[in-house]
C-alpha cells in the first residue's frame, strides 16, 4: 500500500481525478445548460477536435512564441541590469527609485499605450510580456547579488581577480540559485500576461482562442483553452525547476 502512495504521480493523479469527479457531478446536477457549463466528457471530445484540426497547436505555438521572445528579452536586459544595481551603489541610488515606481504599474495598464505604439500583432503582446517579466527579474537579481556572502569577494580580492573574473566567477554563480527561483516565478507571471494580452491585441494565441470561443458561445472550447494553459504552465514551471538541479547550482538549495 505504502509503495503505491510513494510513487511520485500517484497522489497528484488522485487529486486530478477528484476534480474531474466534482466537475462531472456539478455539470450534471447544477441545472445549467450544457452550453453554459459543459461536463468533462464534452470538453475532452472538443479538445480532441481542436487537436485533430490543428487549431490548438497553432494557437499554442503562437502563445509560446510570444512568451519566449518577451521572456528572453527580459532576461537579456533585466539580469545584467540587476547585476549592475546589486554591485554599484551609484547605479542603485540613481535607478532604484525609478524601477520601484514603474514596478507596481500592472502590465495590463500598458495595453492601451502598447497597442497605440506597436499596433496589432505580436509586438504589443511581446512588449507586455517583457514588462511583466523585466521588473521582477531586475529586483530579484539585485537582491540575489547583494546577498552573496561578502567573504567570497574577499577571496576574489585575495586571489587578484580582475573585475571580469569577479562577475563570471563570483557574482554569476553566487546569484544563480536565487535567480533560478526568480525565473520560475517570473515565467508564470509571463504566462499569465500572455493570455490577457492576446485577448486584446492579436488574432491568434490561447487567449484569443478563449475570447473568440466566448463570442461564439462555445464554452467547451473556452475550457479547452484553460486546460492547455494550465498544462503548459505546469510544464514551464517544471522546466525551470530542473535548472536548479544543475550540480554547480545545487549548493544553493543544499548548504543554506
Amino acid at each position: 500500500m505504502m509503495n503505491i502512495i510513494n510513487r511520485p504521480f500517484f497522489l497528484p493523479f488522485i487529486a486530478f481525478s477528484l476534480i474531474l469527479a466534482v466537475w462531472e457531478i456539478l455539470a450534471r446536477y447544477s441545472g445549467w445548460s450544457i452550453h453554459v457549463f459543459p461536463g468533462p466528457m464534452q470538453v475532452f471530445i472538443s479538445l480532441w477536435e481542436l487537436i485533430a484540426n490543428g487549431t490548438l497547436l497553432r494557437h499554442t505555438v503562437a502563445s509560446l512564441f510570444r512568451v519566449t521572445v518577451g521572456f528572453y528579452l527580459a532576461i537579456l536586459l533585466g539580469i545584467p541590469l540587476g547585476i549592475l544595481l546589486g554591485r554599484l551603489k551609484l547605479v542603485r541610488v540613481f535607478l532604484n527609485p525609478v524601477i520601484q515606481f514603474l514596478r507596481p504599474i500592472s502590465p495590463l495598464a500598458w495595453i492601451p499605450l502598447s497597442m497605440l505604439w506597436f499596433g496589432i500583432g505580436d509586438k504589443p503582446a511581446v512588449f507586455l510580456i517583457f514588462l511583466a517579466s523585466f521588473f521582477p527579474l531586475v529586483v530579484s537579481t539585485t537582491v540575489a547579488v547583494q546577498s552573496i556572502n561578502p567573504v567570497y569577494f574577499h577571496v576574489a580580492a585575495n586571489f587578484n581577480f580582475t573585475r571580469y573574473e569577479v562577475v563570471t566567477k563570483i557574482v554569476i554563480p553566487g546569484m544563480l540559485p536565487s535567480v533560478i527561483t526568480a525565473l520560475r516565478i517570473t515565467i508564470t507571471i509571463a504566462w499569465l500576461v500572455v493570455v490577457a494580452a492576446e485577448m486584446i491585441a492579436v488574432k491568434s494565441g490561447l487567449g484569443y482562442l478563449i475570447l473568440d470561443s466566448r463570442n461564439a458561445l462555445t464554452m467547451d472550447y473556452v475550457m479547452d483553452g484553460m486546460i492547455v494553459i494550465g498544462v503548459i504552465g505546469l510544464l514551464l514551471d517544471h522546466a525551470m525547476m530542473r535548472l536548479s538541479r544543475i550540480e554547480s547550482v545545487f549548493w544553493g538549495t543544499r548548504s543554506r
Binding site: 567570497y152 585575495n158 563570483i170 554563480p173 553566487g174 549548493w251
Partner: peptide, 12 residues
C-alpha cells in the same frame, strides 16, 4: 593569502 574563519571555499 587569508584563510577565513568560516568556510570560504567557493561553493559553486
Amino acid at each position: 593569502i587569508f584563510v577565513f574563519q568560516h568556510n570560504a571555499l567557493l561553493p559553486w
